[in-house]
Design a binder for these strands. Sequence first.
DNA 1: GCCGAACCGTACCGTACGGTACGATTTTAG
DNA 2: CTAAAATCGTACCGTACGGTACGGTTCGGC
Lengths: 226, 226
Amino acid sequence: MDQATLSEAETEGFETFTPRQNAVLETALGLLVEGGDRALTTARIARAANCSKESLYKWFGDRDGLLAAVVAYQASKVRAPETGQLPETAEAFRDHLFSFAHDLLSVLSGDVSLALNRLAIGQARRDEAQLGRLVLERGRKRIGQRAGALLEAGRRKGFIEYEDRNAAFRTLYGLIIRDFHVRQLLGDVLDPEERDFEAQAGSAIEQFFRLYGSDAHSEPKTTQIR
Amino acid sequence: MDQATLSEAETEGFETFTPRQNAVLETALGLLVEGGDRALTTARIARAANCSKESLYKWFGDRDGLLAAVVAYQASKVRAPETGQLPETAEAFRDHLFSFAHDLLSVLSGDVSLALNRLAIGQARRDEAQLGRLVLERGRKRIGQRAGALLEAGRRKGFIEYEDRNAAFRTLYGLIIRDFHVRQLLGDVLDPEERDFEAQAGSAIEQFFRLYGSDAHSEPKTTQIR
DNA sequence: GCCGAACCGTACCGTACGGTACGATTTTAG
DNA sequence: CTAAAATCGTACCGTACGGTACGGTTCGGC
């Protein structure tokens, strides 16, 4: 697998798999969710999907290409969250943010997302991390774009105020996810109240508005620490 | 390795290694940081540490025991952050929080921490995650205790207000770490401004005070969304 | 100085994986 | 209907790993 192929095709979503290949990748995804990367061997995939190892290597090149294809396949499934039309009223804006937060919590806590992130993180080294880049490109950045468009719309309408949109997004992200993601990646199970994603999302959005709402600059109090 | 041994000894830090064993574990840690879990094979550790595989199995039981020992060894190194005396003035309290935030960002962004978390996450499955539990127990919970004591002291002194300490802690954590941890676990490299941990910590603490500072309840505005 | 325990280095074993080869079978194009 | 292409199932190869065994060596107790 050469760099150009990965950068142009796999990063941007030009690769499209045949239905048969999609079925195989779906089977592989199931194996991954069930047994982790140790279960994702070429022989097991072939047996579970009723295909030959030769076909796997013909379609995906090698094992790394197959892992990348699994990631790309999953990303292609959740494509197009489609921001829909942007909110016009303050209530609609808050609802959009709430939905975003709720979706984010639900998606990142899902079995498939956790399994794919575990896979990519387990493969990552200090230097290279092909799968990690793919996950970031196909997952994280799409989320950032959706949220970025939302925040920008809210700012133009005067519902919120910020100077650095990326900083505002990262604050929003931190308020929503807190330590839930890494804890779940490590195998921890959230408490029942932590699993109440509606409450968590509501709390996060409420805090976000207290920090960035357009009437929140009542008392800067401390101009800037340090 | 039976459950009791793991629960009592490894979880609570009763196991102590000989200097020779510590040296071997240090070597193993170096291999892990450099090459990830694929590089952490018994043969390589034995060669790099000038010891025999037989000794490794005698000391640590099997490979899982060895990985657990590596985690425990690293945890034993950073033991006792020692909360020191609790802050008496508002400025001291803020400084303590700032130090906590800065330390947290620095530690979680370090090569060793990232390598160990990648290892534990890579091993974790939906069901079992022995290493993940160990990392959570030895790393995360200590952090939570330190922060918890700090927050409680600040609340008693009237510097901040909250109802649920764990919720306050998780908000603080989210404001500090944002999406930095998972991004780095996935192999992403932070932007220069993101790597300015002093600025990031200052910003996080400033936001935290705006949410939880004792004079921050000026306008509840929306009692509770949902 | 002796002895036993711990330890090192190496060799060895069984297994499982990534990847390839090949004949048999199915699918597709014309 | 036929021929070519694609695919399947299986067998096979080389390698690398986890774990064990063993002879030679070091080291501490007496």
